[in-house]
Design a protein around this nucleic acid. Structure first.
Length: 588
RNA sequence: CGGGGCGUAGCGCAGCCUGGUAGCGCACCUGCCUUGGGCGCAGGGGGUCGGAGGUUCGAAUCCUCUCGCCCCGACCA
């Protein structure tokens, strides 16, 4: 049996100054972990115990649909070059050389390695479908690790990969994962939502994220309380209230207006007394592609037009340009391309214009479709234009959805107002397609003896994120409490006085009995004042505490529920069944 | 990578501006005391002041460089 006096649980009275969010503070204060370097942590006894519980739940559920592998974290350059990601991943990938000078990297995910196994060892459709997974350390050289375990450079991920002969098979594998993920997160005691997600730069047809709402999250999720629609802001759409267009001024042709030093939509709207909704804003970007197949890196100017009061979502913009990274144009590039400084940029005669010999792309947000007589920049310093109508006043390359959805806008499904809230991603399921299999040359023979490329899915769960999210969801100013299924211990037995023989004897007996009933219990046998033991117990995430005090003489102990603060006197004879009921109620 | 901040004992901080014996609280060790919410008293240990260089009779303090960490942004399958 675990006795607190023998364990290393370095609790802290004060939170380290570096910690900002609740989970970060409490993981440190509760002695779950210690930091080694930016985004790199050592998990101590309690932290590791909780991580193992989470991983075991994931393993148990994944074993029902797939097979566990253990793959190398150290990968050869070859496979990553074959998939094209050696270049694509850029600075985000840790790279190193061995003594012979051979390039290696630390794997961020394992599409390549898994697909390589398929290439070498799968020959026939009869061997499909396959679902392979692993629970292992992943490495990403994040530009900015933050918020404790929320965003780190070394972390534990369950990632699985499905291989099917056709789309229908992929649908099944994908669905299996969705259901498995729901079981996993339910068992972990998390409140989560499933959202439509951006499929990312790597293509792929469908993807969903499992998100936990928390202020500490880094993602934004739009959701509808009425019909359940939920989507990552990178993907979310909404219905907009109709807007009244301005009447045509003068002859209806674009008309120059002198607007000295009026550079922002806000100023312009005031200056001309028009609503921002009748403005069209111009955003200038450069899309970049890393070197590929021996070709050098390249860049293309991209101009996006949005309604004046709308915000551009860069992920949506990047989504229009496969595998590209986008960055705002720099001042000198803007001058060169538009012939005017930022603040006066507009759409006229842009299509086909080149910057450094590369033709620019003109994109207009779908919210402007059908609008007319808008105000925009004139590509001339200190001038704007009235009467600008897309496709009439200027040519464009593409109508696309580029804007951020705003809170209160209409749900795309049912028109009710949407809410937008922060969330953290704990899992992601993703129909990948044939990209990797193709790139690595994985082929199998189908029924007709024809070579076909299997179709893949990839599915991830962040183990640390589950712990982090659980703490974010369950804490107060004294500490936190974890769902019993993932707590390092489910119960701590606390004798009020370690020197009271009767109390200690009863505590030992109770702890022993609970342990033999399969409850994860520990005994706080420290010779400390009760106040201190309570404070520690409140801090470290154990959901239930049994106080063994003076009433042992009457065979009575007190059961304390951390989440509610509720205390109940229970007869020692009934303690085991009582605790079992509490623990199972919250799902073991 | 841009902006901001911080590195002094395990944790939280003061000292720096105005150079002169390195401090406080908690934690830790010893003893006594205490035992239902971080108890009290007494004694004690623990520091390359992130690192290097410079200025100075003398540097935690001033200057230069450097390393690290945190926050905002950028970035993020």
């Amino acid at each position: 049996m675990y006795r607190w006096s023998q364990l290393f649980i370095p609790t802290l009275r004060d939170a380290p100054a570096d910690a900002e969010v609740a989970s970060h503070k409490y993981l440190l204060r509760a002695g779950y972990m210690r930091q080694l370097a930016a985004g790199i942590y050592s998990y101590l006894f309690l932290g590791q115990r909780s991580m193992l519980k989470i991983a075991n739940i994931v393993r148990e559920e994944m074993d029902k649909i797939g097979q566990e592998f253990h793959l190398p974290a150290l990968n050869s350059r070859e496979v990553w070059e074959a998939s094209g990601r050696w270049d694509l991943m850029g600075e985000n990938m840790f790279r190193l050389k061995d003594r012979k000078g051979t390039d290696l990297c630390l794997a961020m995910t394992h599409e390549e390695v898994m697909t390589e196994i398929v290439r070498k060892d799968l020959r026939s459709y009869k061997q499909l479908p396959q679902i392979w997974y692993q629970i292992q350390t992943k490495f990403r050289d994040e530009p900015r690790p933050k918020a404790g375990l929320m965003r780190v450079r070394q972390f534990t991920m369950k990632d699985s990969y499905s291989f099917d002969i056709d789309e229908a098979g992929l649908d099944v594998s994908y669905k299996k994962h969705e259901q498995t993920y729901r079981r996993i997160f339910n068992r972990c005691g998390l409140k989560y939502i499933v959202v439509e997600a951006h499929s990312g730069a790597m293509g792929g047809s469908k993807s969903q994220e499992f998100m936990v709402h928390t202020e500490a999250g880094e993602d934004l999720v739009a959701s509808c309380a009425k019909c359940g629609y939920a989507a990552n802001l990178e993907k979310a759409t909404s219905k907009l209230e109709p807007v009244d267009d301005l009447p045509a001024a003068g002859d209806g042709e674009p008309e120059l207006v002198h607007t000295p030093d009026v550079k922002t939509i806000e100023d312009l709207s005031k200056f001309l007394t028009v609503s921002p909704k009748n403005n069209m804003k111009t955003l200038a970007y450069m899309a970049g592609w890393p070197p590929k197949d021996g070709e050098p890196a390249r860049e293309q100017p991209v101009v996006a037009f949005l309604r004046g009061d709308h915000m551009l979502n860069e992920a949506k913009l990047a989504g229009v340009l496969p595998e590209a990274q986008v960055r705002p144009m720099q001042a000198d590039e803007i001058e060169e391309f538009f012939g005017a400084p930022a603040g006066f940029l507009g759409p006229l005669a842009l299509k086909g214009r080149k910057l450094r010999g590369v033709r620019g792309l003109v994109l207009v947000d779908a919210a402007l479709k059908g609008r007319k007589n808008l105000v925009s920049g004139a590509n001339k310093k200190d001038y704007h234009l009235k009467n600008v109508t897309p496709e009439v006043s200027f040519e464009l390359d593409q109508w696309v959805d580029l804007r951020n959805v705003g809170a209160g806008e209409g749900c795309p499904e049912c028109s009710q107002p949407l809410t937008v809230a922060k969330a953290v991603e704990i899992g992601h399921i993703f129909k990948l397609g044939r990209r990797y299999a193709q790139a690595l040359g994985a082929r199998v023979l189908d029924k007709d003896g024809k070579e076909v490329t299997p179709i893949m899915g990839s599915y991830g769960i962040g183990i640390e994120r589950i712990l982090t999210a659980a703490i974010e969801q369950n804490h107060d100013d004294q500490g936190f409490w974890l769902p019993p299924a993932i707590a390092p211990f489910q119960v701590v037995v606390t004798p009020i006085s370690a020197r009271d023989r009767a109390q200690m004897a009863a505590s030992e007996r109770i702890a022993g009995e609970l342990a033999s009933d399969g409850i994860d219990v520990m005994l706080d046998d420290r010779d400390e004042r009760p106040g201190m033991k309570f404070k520690d117990a409140d801090l470290v995430g154990i959901p239930f505490r049994i106080n063994v005090g003076k009433k042992v003489t009457e065979d009575c102990v007190e059961v304390f529920e951390r989440s509610t603060g509720q205390k109940r006197d229970v007869n020692i004879a009934a303690i085991s069944s009582h605790v079992e009921a509490l623990v199972r109620r919250s799902g073991i």
